[in-house]
């Protein structure tokens, strides 16, 4: 602490940006590490589910993500001749930017949060909605029919699932009576049965499944749909430009896992009274949600694009709306405490 104060006096007015930058790096760098090892975890876990080994050569598999990253960095980024160069490079940037920026308001514990803003939930909603622009821009700028179809599918899908997700979160904010993520978690205090997954169970399911759709993961991976439109919006990308999309997808997965844990699974709170809370609980809950993501991918066939839309508009949005009304009505009765 004294050391920090010394630095603060040394830097003077430059202190605030420098200290913020340090904090940002302290979030982003471990996040990138998590992304790298999430890819390894995915390949290993799906490998075991599919009676095979998964990567086991580079450092017994443990160095595989690093080898992949190095390989992608040294590969040429091929720009298709008809592509719009500026937008072609803007695409990956647009998709990774929100995936990282959303972490600014994610509370890791009750005190460990970069920006404890009151409208944290709104901020998250706003920022994550931006991610789709990266996909759309990339699909359009590539000047490829496959990429264009991918972009179309992705925009339609994300726009419709955004609404279901939004309504699911409205349920949370009604229960917590706050948009501040720290307060949302604090409102769930009291153990496993007090977390919002129970009173808001339909919302929880809708949010989780919409999250899978939002991140373009199987069985909702129609924007990539490798057996239909080959790789969809990033078909023309190679090298690091492709890797950035890849990073964005996995960063988004981790983000959705974090948000699900915070909104519905009590964030850093421990499931049993008496056991201390802490970041380890958040990590465990996120790992569980991420495992579900991988499990889905190994198990389910891919939805067709129109079926996804149907599921979003005709099932999820009505379910959330009905539950919102029910929740609102119940909160006016003596039984309202069930929802708090």
């Amino acid at each position: 602490m004294e050391l920090l104060q010394t630095f603060e006096q040394m830097l003077g007015p430059a202190w605030v940006p420098v200290w913020t930058l340090v904090k940002i790096l302290a979030i982003v760098l471990p996040l990138m590490g998590c992304v790298a090892y999430l890819t390894l975890a995915e390949r290993k876990i799906i490998g075991w589910m599919q009676v095979r080994m998964g990567p086991n050569r580079v450092g017994y598999g443990w160095l595989q993500p690093i080898a992949d990253a190095v390989k992608l960095m040294f590969k040429e980024i091929i720009i298709p001749s008809g592509a719009n160069k500026a937008l072609f490079f803007l695409g990956p940037v647009l998709s990774i930017m929100p995936a990282l920026a959303a972490w600014a308001v994610i509370p890791f514990t009750d005190t460990l949060v970069l920006a404890n803003v009151d409208a944290g939930l709104l901020y998250v909603m706003a920022i994550t909605s931006l991610g789709v622009y990266g996909v759309v821009v990339a699909g359009w700028a590539s000047n490829s029919k496959y990429a264009f179809l991918g972009a179309l599918r992705s925009s339609a899908q994300i726009v419709s699932y955004e609404i279901a997700m939004g309504f699911a979160l409205v349920g949370v904010l009604m229960s917590a009576q706050s948009l501040n993520l720290v307060e949302i978690v604090e409102a769930q205090k009291g153990g496993f049965w007090q977390w919002y997954w129970l009173p808001l169970f339909p919302m929880f399911l809708v949010y989780l499944i919409s999250g899978v759709a939002e991140t373009n993961r199987a069985p909702f991976d129609v924007a990539e749909g490798e057996s239909e439109i080959v790789a969809g919006f990033h078909i023309e990308y190679s090298g690091m430009a492709f890797a950035v999309f890849f990073l964005a997808e996995y960063a988004n997965m981790i983000l959705i896992a974090a948000l699900t844990s915070i909104m519905f699974l009590g964030g850093w709170l421990s499931p049993f009274p008496g056991i201390p809370d802490g970041f380890i609980w958040l990590a465990a809950k996120m790992s569980f949600v991420l495992f579900l993501f991988l499990w889905f991918r190994a198990t389910f066939p891919r939805y067709r694009y129109d079926q996804i839309m149907r599921l979003g508009w005709k099932v999820f949005i009505p379910v959330t709306l009905v539950w919102l009304v029910l929740e609102g009505a119940f909160m006016q009765t003596p039984l309202g405490y069930l929802f708090h």
Binding site: Q50, V51, A218, P219
Partner: peptide, 10 residues
């Protein structure tokens, strides 16, 4: 093709 990956390896 339909997106179920595991069946392929089985």
């Amino acid at each position: 093709d339909v997106g179920a990956m595991t069946i392929f390896l089985y």
